[in-house]
Measured scan of single mutants.
Amino acid sequence: MSIQHFRVALIPFFAAFCLPVFAHPETLVKVKDAEDQLGARVGYIELDLNSGKILESFRPEERFPMMSTFKVLLCGAVLSRVDAGQEQLGRRIHYSQNDLVKYSPVTEKHLTDGMTVRELCSAAITMSDNTAANLLLTTIGGPKELTAFLHNMGDHVTRLDRWEPELNEAIPNDERDTTMPAAMATTLRKLLTGELLTLASRQQLIDWMEADKVAGPLLRSALPAGWFIADKSGASERGSRGIIAALGPDGKPSRIVVIYTTGSQATMDERNRQIAEIGASLIKHW
């Protein structure tokens, strides 16, 4: 058993032996400061991975655009179909130039040979490839079927209504393609630790998130040596930015963190910096 498999397999085991986890309101002070700095709403939640207890939250039940963070949920739905014998990670999917949409750094290189379902999930999560996400959405029946999958998990909040890139429109008060921090954190925890997916599929999902290559300026920039993080970021119109993550010290995840912001006029660099500073406060007061 690899170190990674050891880590995921023991998450339920550690729940019975973990020390009490204490919240630190200092992080919420930073979240509120980020709102002031960005001139935008910020949603935040910090969840204990083992118990599911909410440690801190700010606007946990307000809607925010999901942006590309939905791609983790999408690959969770794909893995659920794999577990049920309805899909194979090794199945190759062929597509054409007409299928390519904006920001497809991986799929645009494989027009001649296509990509496997496994490769598409990797591209969608680690590189946020939009065509990969659309191709995967097609395999499960489209955005409405992803919403149905989430409903069956008990998440009646999170919804996907459109495809890439239209889902990134982020119109104020538009509930399409949105979630709430509390709903996203709970759903992510179920995917990573619950019985919905097999152990192998849970491991695969967290491996893809751990290999994320496009979230460096966010929480990863504040991470001390030896800490673990598996994450997925997102960005969209109207100053929207977000990240969902499982992270913790000693090389294993122990908390879920979800951060969303929307409605800012700030630059992408400034949005990144504010999220990184929230992460730094979280780690300092861990």
Rank of each mutant, 00 (worst) to 15 (best):
V106G: 03
T198P: 04
S51C: 04
F70L: 02
T261M: 15
L219Y: 00
S240G: 15
V78I: 13
E35A: 02
R241Y: 04
E87A: 04
V258I: 11
L219V: 06
E175Q: 12
R92Y: 09
L223K: 03
E62V: 06
L79V: 04
H285Q: 06
R202I: 03
P224Y: 01
G242H: 01
L199P: 10
T186E: 14
R91Q: 04
C18Y: 10
Y44E: 00
A123V: 04
R92S: 08
Q4V: 13
L49S: 04
E195R: 12
Q88V: 13
G248R: 00
P172S: 10
L191V: 06
L160C: 13
T262R: 07
S80V: 10
L49V: 10
Y260F: 11
L218I: 03
I125R: 00
L247T: 02
G234A: 06
E166I: 06
D99H: 11
L188G: 01
D269R: 09
T178H: 01
D177L: 01
W286C: 05
G76T: 03
G43W: 00
S80F: 12
R189L: 10
A222R: 14
D177N: 03
R271A: 15
W163K: 07
R92H: 08
L196V: 15
S221K: 13
V82G: 03
W163A: 07
D250R: 10
A170E: 15
I244L: 05
H156S: 12
I11F: 12
F22Y: 13
L282A: 05
S281D: 05
I259F: 02
E119D: 10
I125A: 00
K32N: 07
E87L: 10
R41K: 15
V21S: 14
L218V: 02
L167V: 12
A235T: 05
A276N: 08
K144T: 13
S57Y: 08
E237D: 12
Y44P: 00
K284W: 05
N173R: 09
V82C: 13
E164Q: 01
G251V: 04
R238Q: 13
R189N: 09
S281P: 01
L137G: 01
R241L: 05
R59L: 01
N50V: 14
I278M: 05
G90N: 14
G90Y: 12
L47Q: 06
F17Y: 14
L55Y: 08
N130S: 05
L199V: 15
R176C: 08
R91W: 02
G90H: 15
E61A: 14
T267Y: 04
A77E: 06
P172Q: 10
K144I: 11
P217N: 12
S254L: 08
P217R: 08
E175N: 11
L218M: 07
I243W: 03
V42G: 01
G90L: 11
M268K: 05
F64Y: 04
A246Y: 08
H285V: 04
T126A: 09
I45V: 15
P249L: 02
E166Y: 11
T126L: 04
L55F: 09
A40N: 09
L47R: 01
D83L: 00
M180N: 15
S221F: 06
S254E: 15
L199R: 15
E270D: 09
T187A: 05
F6R: 11
T198D: 08
K53N: 11
L218H: 02
A230C: 08
R159S: 06
S254G: 10
L137Y: 07
K252Q: 12
T126R: 04
W208Y: 04
L223F: 13
V72C: 04
A9D: 06
E119K: 05
L247M: 13
R118E: 08
R81Y: 06
G239L: 02
A170Y: 15
L79C: 02
P165R: 03
M153R: 04
G263E: 11
V8D: 12
I11N: 04
P181A: 03
D33A: 14
M153K: 05
Q204S: 08
A211M: 11
A245C: 07
A15C: 13
P143T: 04
F228G: 01
L55S: 02
E145Q: 14
P25H: 09
H24A: 07
S240H: 15
S68R: 00
R118G: 15
G194A: 12
F149S: 04
T178G: 01
N168Y: 04
T107L: 06
L197R: 02
R63Y: 04
S80Y: 13
W227G: 00
R159A: 03
V82Q: 04
V78C: 03
Y103L: 05
E164R: 00
Q88C: 13
A40T: 09
S96Y: 11
S264M: 06
L247I: 13
P65W: 01
M180V: 13
A222L: 05
H285N: 13
Y260D: 00
R238C: 13
T178F: 01
Q37L: 14
P65R: 03
I243E: 02
T186P: 06
K252S: 11
A183E: 08
A84S: 14
G226V: 01
V8K: 15
V72I: 07
I3L: 15
K252G: 08
R63S: 04
F228R: 02
R241E: 02
N98G: 12
Q88S: 15
H24I: 05
G114D: 13
P224K: 03
D83Y: 01
S57K: 11
R238F: 13
L73Q: 02
N173K: 10
Q265T: 14
I283D: 00
Q265N: 15
E87R: 00
P65V: 04
F149Y: 14
G263V: 07
H285Y: 10
I278V: 05
L247V: 09
P25S: 08
